[in-house]
Design a protein around this nucleic acid. Structure first.
Lengths: 163, 163
DNA sequence: CAAAATTTGAAATATTATAACATTGGCAGG
DNA sequence: CCTGCCAATGTTATAATATTTCAAATTTTG
């Protein structure tokens, strides 16, 4: 299945980025949403790795671009991208990561490596089902789930000191 | 089972608080940890409702007490309480809530009502099992799980405008 | 083109959290 | 009983994250 665990394996990351941008353009067009230059640039920056990036990290990258942006610029772009399912916010880190299931209907489950910081996003149907079951068992109507698991990725289990 | 869904039902909340404090004293004694007056007071404040409380809310309550505290005082107390399993931090809200399973070995799942803000903590074995399974399926060694579900509690599903 | 709506700029400020160092208070060993 | 240590707390300052507000520019629509 999705068991390739891509972020943890060497890969041509440029391909990830350009794929993400291509997908984003298509999705925004479909949804009649405007992927403006700033928004696209922020998405690209978020995708520069499989590690979550803080809003202020994005901000300083924009500054390096020569773009003299203020925090609201970044937060607005991130809001837009979240709204359209292109990035996720990792609540336990106050940081953002590109969505690897953009366009698909999914509930993200994030595996965050505490050693190398890489994040793998999974869609785990069985997990969602059990969560929904547990919630409705007490009469709770679930709308939104935050599921973030920290631990050690396969790579870092093997070699505990480098990323 | 635990399907009483206490926070959502009228109950004698003073009993919750004094039970929590009693349990906390026992647990700290067992663990040779010092439940100092500040720590106990912070725990009591956190327990004043089943709604999560921000660190700065705790701070201003302490000020009302006449205790002229600074942020580190509160954060230190909260750290201590978390460490000993007496409170949980709700990452999606940057707020803290009393643990209703203190002393028990558990993985919290939090059901957060977006209307009345009450939080129910569940221990859902089936959920934990599936999470663990999904993680190990991609070779990830899970250590810590953040699971927060927002939605509508039973009470607020019935009467959507009051808490 | 003009009006309306969306997007971005800019300044200020709110909110959450930590760093660094000084002080206090209990307690163990001499 | 003192003394030196250690944990806890006090205190000041600051870091990191996020939002409010209003103005200007740009795009879309009629």
């Amino acid at each position: 299945m999705s068991a390739r665990a891509i972020p943890y394996r060497p890969h041509n990351h440029d391909a990830c980025v350009s794929q993400a941008l291509t997908d984003a353009r298509a999705i925004c067009q479909q949804q009649n949403a405007r992927l403006t230059p700033i928004r696209e640039r922020v998405l690209e920056l978020i995708w520069q790795s499989h590690r979550p990036l803080g809003a202020y990290d994005v901000l300083s990258e924009l500054s390096s671009d020569g773009h003299n942006a203020a925090p609201p610029t970044v937060y607005r772009a991130l809001d837009f991208l979240q709204q359209h399912g292109l990035v996720h916010r990792i609540a336990s880190l106050n940081a953002f990561i590109g969505c690897t299931h953009a366009g698909e209907n999914h509930t993200g489950m994030f595996l965050i490596c505490r050693a190398c910081s890489n994040v793998l996003e999974l869609t785990a149907t069985a997990v969602s089902t059990e969560i929904r079951k547990a919630a409705s068992g007490v009469g709770f109507q679930a709308e939104n789930t935050t599921l973030e698991v920290s631990g050690l990725c396969p790579r870092c289990q093997a070699e505990p000191d480098d990323g």
